[in-house]
Nucleic acid binder design. Structure first.
Length: 460
RNA sequence: GGCCGGGUGGCCGAGUGGCUUAGGCAAGGGCCUGCAAAGCCCUGUACGCGGGUUCGAUUCCCGCUCCGGCCUCCA
């Protein structure tokens, strides 16, 4: 499989350290506030990668961390009058719920920063010992100029970087960044060789990735906004420690609010996942977030959502109708090509193209259904569903909705009464009566379809 | 100012030096239906601007322009 690599800025084959196994580290959220749809896009984009690697027969170790201590968590918790760990625990739960809502596969390991302080300290000690980091009044900084490759991930020239605000009193060079921050009063802290303090933002990922994937691993992913400084700094630290670190860097695009501006909490334009789910069924949300290319920007708008809803409904209708029709039928020859789908996915996860294959399969399948060519339909349906499963969009296994409720048999029985009454009316050619019954059901959100095999109903 | 990505038909969005249509949504026509619904078939409008290379460029090269991201916390 080929993927765009941020460092080399080219689509190139994903070369695995170990045959048949992929080790992936993904930067998860800082659990400071409730997740917005941008966070979910991140998780879904990487979930498509995760699922495709699994579908390709690979064993995947997928590590996604949780940053559960940092400045903002501490500040917000203080503002709330609650302990910092209470806030981060609550928000961690909110993120897990958000991920679950769109069926993001759980990571193999989900390490928290606070659970890896010893590993972080050990890594910093190594950097201090080899002279690439230095302690300064209880803080520890990485000496960026000691890392010759600094800038290679983000393609930045260190000399051209705009210097940040001058809190540089403790730094030897303004480019240097903190590995360890000494504790201020009322802040959480852990004991260290440099005094009580806590990890800087970047060092955690370097330490946890190595803990679970080894000093060199296959793939590191995250949002485009993490390229600089976070991933640049991670790479610098790990390189300075003598680690090979990530062989391939993957970054996904961001969600923008309507109008094109990036969605983020600090810009105040974010849409919470919980709010999005009130207006949009989870399967449609999954479609909207998971069917655009992972590197593209996605605009969050009603248009996108309604088009996603329409496209997903088409797929859902086909799968439902076809599944009913082919029960017990021996599969014949499929009208869709798994190879075509796989080739698209292998090509830098070209989901748009892969989705075109699915839609072609749906159209062919609908034609087979109309023609009553059931063996071919059964085979086509199976292939389409296999493809949908990769995107987590199979209406039967991934999103069993109205059909699975405990109330369904009850509603079905009630609808049958109306359907039978309407059948009588149609028998008498009393179209006024028949249509009145259908209209009343429609008003209640139930759509009837007269098919060759009988009357079918669905919720709309 | 530096670095990255992008401007494709009404909308979203793949892709390619000419060859066969991406795909979805929307629109128009037809078929099916008592009428619908679902579905199938058909139809149309494309490749930001200006140069260059080429027999031929939306697709390669150069310049311009517009949009977004990063250079500060951020998925």
């Amino acid at each position: 499989m080929r993927l765009y690599d941020t460092r080399t800025r080219v689509v190139r084959p994903l070369q695995l350290q170990r045959e048949g196994h992929v080790g992936i580290y993904v930067c998860g959220p800082t659990v400071q506030a409730r997740p917005h749809v941008g966070h979910l896009r991140s998780a879904v984009a990487l979930d498509v990668l995760h699922r495709w690697l699994l579908a390709s027969g690979l064993e995947v170790t997928f590590v996604r961390n949780v940053t559960d201590v940092d400045d903002k968590i501490i500040n917000d918790a203080q503002a709330n009058g609650e302990p910092w760990w209470a806030l981060s625990t609550r928000m961690t739960r909110a993120f897990t719920q958000a991920y679950d809502s769109v069926h993001v596969l759980p990571p193999t390991v989900e390490p928290r920063v606070t659970g890896h302080i010893p590993q972080i300290i050990a890594l910093i000690e190594l950097l201090v010992a080899n002279g690439t980091a230095y302690a300064s009044e209880g803080d520890v900084y990485l000496s960026v100029r000691s890392v010759p490759t600094y800038g290679e991930i983000s393609n930045q020239n260190p000399d051209a970087l705009r210097q940040g605000a001058a809190d540089a009193s403790l730094k030897r060079d303004p480019l240097d960044f903190a590995l360890w921050k000494s504790a201020k009063p009322d802040e959480p802290s852990w004991p260290s060789p440099w005094g009580p303090g806590r990890p800087g933002w970047h060092i955690e990922c370097s330490a946890m990735a190595v803990e679970y994937l080894g000093t060199t691993f296959d793939l590191h992913g995250g949002g485009l906004d993490l390229v600089f400084p976070h991933h640049e700094n991670e790479n610098a630290q790990s390189t300075a420690a003598g680690h090979g670190f990530a062989r391939h860097w993957l970054h996904h695009g961001l969600i923008t609010a309507a109008g094109g501006e990036k969605m983020s909490k600090s810009l105040g334009n974010s849409v919470l996942v919980t709010d999005a789910l009130e207006a949009t069924p989870p399967a449609v949300l999954r479609y909207a977030l998971g069917t655009s290319h992972y590197r593209s920007t996605v605009e969050w708008s009603d248009t996108v959502l309604s088009e996603s809803a329409a496209a997903y409904a088409r797929i859902e209708t086909f799968v439902r109708n076809a599944t009913e029709a082919v029960a017990g039928v021996e599969p014949g020859e499929s009208k869709v090509s798994w190879e075509e789908f796989a080739a698209a996915m292998d090509d830098d996860l070209n989901v748009s193209s892969a989705l075109a294959t699915i839609h072609n399969g749906v159209r062919a399948g609908n034609a087979l259904l109309a023609a009553g060519e059931l063996p071919a339909l059964a085979a086509t349906l199976a292939e389409v569903r296999r493809m949908l499963a990769v995107l987590c969009l199979d209406p039967v296994t991934d999103w069993p909705t109205s059909g699975s409720s405990e109330l369904t048999p009850v509603v079905d029985a009630l609808v049958q009464l109306a359907v039978e009454a309407r059948a009588d009316a149609r028998e008498r050619k009393d179209w006024t009566q028949a249509d009145a019954l259908r209209d009343r059901l429609a008003a209640a959100g139930i759509t009837l379809e007269d098919t060759a095999g009988g009357v079918r109903w669905r919720l709309t």
